[in-house]
Design a protein around this nucleic acid. Structure first.
Length: 664
DNA sequence: CCAGTATCCCTTTTT
DNA sequence: GGGATACTGG
């Protein structure tokens, strides 16, 4: 079966294939090898789950570097920072340290880098602040107040308004269309929302702020409208590799086309069956249209052999996708046989489901499976709360991905807001936030001070003026005293953060009953902040590449090498794999959720999400659901397994109920 | 003008 | 369980 290949031993002549240290042909299958060796021009790799997509990208990076391509001229775009870091680490292990210099990261962090360098072309200052989701909503809320006053009826909430504006950007569509299609209940408010969208855009320009969508929008704009920047970027990157292409939206797709330049050395990797980000404007049709975007002919390569999962797991996963409305032209196969079929576990209630997961995890650990080889996956981040509780009880260390993030908690954002005004004094939202924390300052006085302090001619030393605006409130004086001190003395990041934390400490105690727990988070933040030499960089990273772990694991990870169980939303689990995977809450109404029932499109996205969940498992797949759960929204009593499972041939899985054992 | 409380509504996934 | 809003008391 093994192919023989000729290998030159002594030749040091330049040219492809004559000086490789890695035996590509032996270590890759034919399709992977073709992708790795692809010389240049556009290429699309359609890669099913577990078919060695990441491996292929890594080997390609190594191959390019071995062929003498400057690592800094290779750009590797991914969706999560986790994925980018992991890939470069593996490439470095495979080849050598040269791979560390490969340019890479998420679309957003790449945009951030380019835009800071060329900010003047789009009339921004290079010290612009990046707004995360919550910050962006706060800005919208500030403007919303102007509109809402004149209305009797309930007006859309800040989150909804921001979602609409964001959806219009990401789908390259108009506000009107988005409201019409997705938010019909706000059709009469279209004019106001359109006005708010404009006001929001203006506000961000005036205050030197960018949200996530702006990063992509302005990168797109600068590449389109400023030839000098476009050509410079195109010269810099000789090869562009994009992972998870099925999750790109229209602006991202166009950015990739710009980056490709004349040479069109761009390789996109993705799986149409794993498109799970349509809420962000991604459309799996994008990946289908990819080949037409270029002048040169696009090479298309399919990877279909799965190296991850056993055949029974693949059989079930394939069956899930075969029932899709839009069929995908792909059937995964493997040589990994096993007798163990996926398990479907019917629990009486939520607690029993959680107990089952924990006891099964412990049992597998007894059998020698590391905790880090196991994961519990779920549709929505709050689905894991019972499991978390029981894991804590049983002293099982875990880390959780997805859902609410550490840096989005109120107290951390409070501290960050103080730092933000130091870097960007025009950041009115942060000013507003920190002023409202002071005792005796409400929306009115805060607003007056924000106006005064963000004026063009304002100087912070004008403390008495600000104090007067707040009815001679002394805490205003203290705040400005602290900020002025930091502003004058160019202190290090660590000292700066320490000063702010000291100042914030009494507020924390006053505002939160659980300040003990929260102060530990703040200590954690300080530890992270100390690693930075530059405040700008710290703040940009907090919005763009903040660690995704939530609080729980912070206490759990004290022990460096301790093996941790993973809890994760399915979205955050994309691209990862574990030997043992639990998918919990596979209850019709939770997964898929009730709200997706009436739309075929939404249901199909849920189906793909379910497919992603199942294909994370290498050896064992446990799916569980509790019986008889009441749904407050609809008043329905839910009790059936997910329709994706009910539609399957019963031969594909084994069904179990739970019995109590007394030997605990 | 601020702070505290009561009430109603909505509740996904990520950069 | 959190956010927005309305109302009350200081």
């Amino acid at each position: 079966m093994k192919k023989l290949s000729l290998k030159k031993v002594t030749s040091r002549k330049r040219g492809p294939g004559q000086h490789y240290t890695i035996r590509y042909a032996d270590e890759l299958n034919a399709a992977q090898h073709q992708a790795v060796m692809h010389a240049g021009g556009p290429a699309l790799i359609i890669a099913g789950a577990g078919t060695g997509k990441t491996r292929t990208l890594i080997y390609r990076v190594a191959r390019l570097v071995e062929d003498g391509v400057d690592p800094r001229a290779i750009l590797l775009l991914t969706f999560t920072r986790k994925a980018a870091g992991e890939m470069l680490r593996r490439a470095t292990m495979l080849l050598d340290g040269r791979c560390e210099h490969v340019a890479g990261g998420t679309f957003h962090s790449f945009a951030n880098q380019v835009l800071r360098r060329h900010a003047k072309h789009i009339k921004f200052d290079s010290s612009f602040s990046v707004l995360d989701q919550g910050d962006a909503q706060d800005v919208v809320n500030l403007l919303r107040a102007q509109v809402v006053g004149s209305r009797k009826k309930r007006f859309a909430r800040k989150q909804t308004i921001h979602n609409i504006i964001s959806a219009a950007m990401n789908r390259a569509s108009s506000i009107e269309d988005i409201i019409h299609n997705d938010y019909p209940q706000f059709v009469e408010d279209t004019t106001e929302i359109e006005y708010l969208a404009e006001a929001y855009a203006r506000y961000k320009v005036n205050h030197n702020l960018m949200d996530y969508d702006d990063l992509l929008f302005y990168l797109h704009k600068i590449l389109q409208e400023v030839p000098a920047v476009r050509e410079q970027v195109q010269r810099q990157y000789k090869h562009v590799l994009v992972d998870e292409y099925q999750d790109t939206n229209i602006p991202q797709h166009e950015i990739v086309v710009f980056l490709a330049g004349q040479q069109e050395n761009v390789m996109a990797v993705g799986d149409d069956a794993q498109s799970i980000y349509s809420f962000r404007g991604a459309n799996f049709a994008n990946i289908m249209k990819f080949p037409q975007a270029f002048n040169k002919e696009c090479t298309i390569i399919k990877l279909e052999e799965n190296y991850r999962s056993t055949q029974p797991i693949l059989d079930l996963s394939n069956a899930v996708m075969n029932a899709a409305v839009q069929k995908f032209d792909k059937e995964l196969y493997t040589h990994r046989q096993a007798e163990d079929k996926p398990y479907l576990i019917k629990a009486d209630n939520e607690e029993q489901q959680a107990e089952f997961v924990v006891s099964q995890v412990l049992e597998m650990r007894e059998e020698g499976v590391e905790l880090s080889d196991m994961a519990v996956l779920f549709r929505s981040s709050h689905h894991s709360s019972d499991v978390e509780l029981y894991l804590n009880k049983a002293n099982v260390p875990f880390q959780k991905f997805g859902g609410f993030k550490f840096f989005e908690t109120a107290h951390i954002k409070d501290v960050i807001a103080h730092l933000r005004v130091l870097v960007n004094p025009r950041d009115a939202v942060s000013w507003n936030r920190i002023l409202l924390l002071l005792e005796g300052i409400g929306p009115r006085r805060a607003g007056a001070i924000v106006d005064a302090v963000t004026e063009e001619s304002a100087t912070w030393s004008d403390v008495q003026r600000f104090k007067a605006l707040a009815g001679n409130n002394t805490s205003v004086e203290e705040l400005f005293g602290m900020l002025n001190k930091l502003n004058r003395k160019r202190v290090g990041v660590d000292e700066c953060v320490a000063t702010v934390v000291d100042f914030y400490w009494p507020t924390l105690k006053r505002k939160y009953d659980d300040h003990q727990k929260r102060s530990r988070d703040i200590e954690m933040f300080q530890t992270i902040a100390e690693r930075y030499a530059d405040l700008d960089e710290l703040l940009a990273d907090m919005a763009l590449e903040a660690p995704v772990e939530s609080l729980e694991d912070v206490s759990a990870t004290n022990d460096e090498d301790e093996s941790l169980l993973t809890l994760s939303t399915i979205h955050s689990a994309k691209g990862l794999e574990w030997r043992v995977v639990f998918v919990i809450w596979v209850l019709d109404g939770r997964f898929p959720p009730v709200r997706s029932f009436k739309s075929t499109e939404d249901l199909e996205e849920e189906r793909r999400l379910f497919y992603v969940a199942c294909t994370r498992a290498a050896d064992h797949l446990f799916m569980s659901y509790p019986m008889n759960i009441y749904d407050r929204e609809t008043g329905m009593v839910l009790g059936r397994p997910s329709r994706f499972i009910e539609a399957l041939d019963q031969e594909l899985y084994d069904e179990y109920t739970l019995e109590f054992n007394d030997d605990e």
